[in-house]
Simulated scan of single mutants.
Amino acid sequence: MSYENKPTILMVPGLRDHVAEHWQTLLERKLPNAASVPPLEHDKLSCAARVAALDAALAKIDGPVILVAHSAGVMITVQWAQRHSRKIHGALLAAPADLETPLPAGYPDFESLAGNGWLPIPRKPLPFPSIVGASRNDPLARFERVETMARDWGSRLVDLGEVGHLNPAAGFGEWPMAETLIDELV
């Protein structure tokens, strides 16, 4: 697809920010109309700081936007949608992290997430079209939980099969399906 005169694709990375081999980073480099929420220098675990960074990135973009979020970036997106009213063309919400259940070792614990404003996960319908891509074996979220989130948000659920957390650790650099799903939102 030609992306000329199409919405800006804004990447919303998770808590680990930008990873060179991650599909979001690779996709941003590939698409001529893509940008990314910059990494935070301070308050990296603060939900409010992450939402403010997304809002600041959106403020720099004229015209329609499609958000492409991964992991906790999905939670940043849904938290932002509860607090702001800018029109969004659509969102691809890939492998949302279920922050309401204990995460594996190496990730923030429940108390840290609660103390930094991540909980509860917003459950209101999103005010824009959205697609949730869910993995059957994601260590950060059970499929059934993501299925419920997608329903609550009014999102179309796409079963991605067994793709882990859809990141380099799960064997994903490029993820061609992302472009297909973004095209559905364009």
Rank of each mutant, 00 (worst) to 15 (best):
E162I: 13
P125Y: 05
N116K: 03
L67C: 05
L58P: 01
F110M: 14
W80D: 08
A150N: 06
R151W: 05
D43V: 09
G90N: 02
N5R: 08
A57E: 13
F143K: 03
G90W: 00
K87E: 09
V12S: 08
R151I: 12
E179A: 10
I76C: 05
G161D: 02
Q82N: 11
N5V: 03
L10T: 07
F143C: 06
L113D: 08
T148E: 11
I61H: 00
A114I: 03
R16F: 15
P127K: 08
M1A: 15
W118H: 10
L31K: 10
S2G: 15
P122L: 12
I131H: 09
M11H: 00
M1V: 15
L54G: 01
Y107H: 15
E111F: 09
W23P: 10
T180W: 04
D159F: 07
G164L: 09
W153S: 07
P64N: 03
D17T: 14
D98P: 10
E174V: 14
A134M: 06
L140I: 10
I61M: 00
H18T: 15
S46T: 04
A20N: 15
L31W: 11
V74H: 04
D55G: 12
P125G: 03
L166R: 13
N167F: 12
P104K: 09
A169K: 03
S71D: 05
S71R: 03
K30L: 07
L119D: 08
P64I: 00
E162Y: 04
N167Y: 09
K44F: 02
L181Y: 03
L26S: 13
V51I: 08
I61P: 00
F143I: 01
G117T: 15
G133S: 09
D152G: 00
R136D: 08
G14P: 06
D152P: 10
L67P: 01
F143D: 01
W175Q: 08
I9L: 14
S130I: 03
P108F: 09
L27K: 04
V146E: 01
K44P: 02
P13K: 10
L45Q: 12
V68D: 02
D17P: 07
W23R: 07
A169S: 11
L31P: 03
E144S: 01
N116I: 12
S2W: 11
D183W: 02
G133H: 05
R83C: 02
R142D: 07
A134I: 06
F110E: 14
E28S: 12
N137S: 12
I88T: 02
T8G: 00
T148G: 09
H165W: 00
L40V: 05
S36D: 06
A53V: 04
S112Q: 15
Y107E: 12
A52R: 11
W23N: 07
L99Y: 01
A94W: 05
A134T: 07
P38H: 14
G63A: 00
V186D: 08
P129K: 12
A81Q: 08
K44L: 05
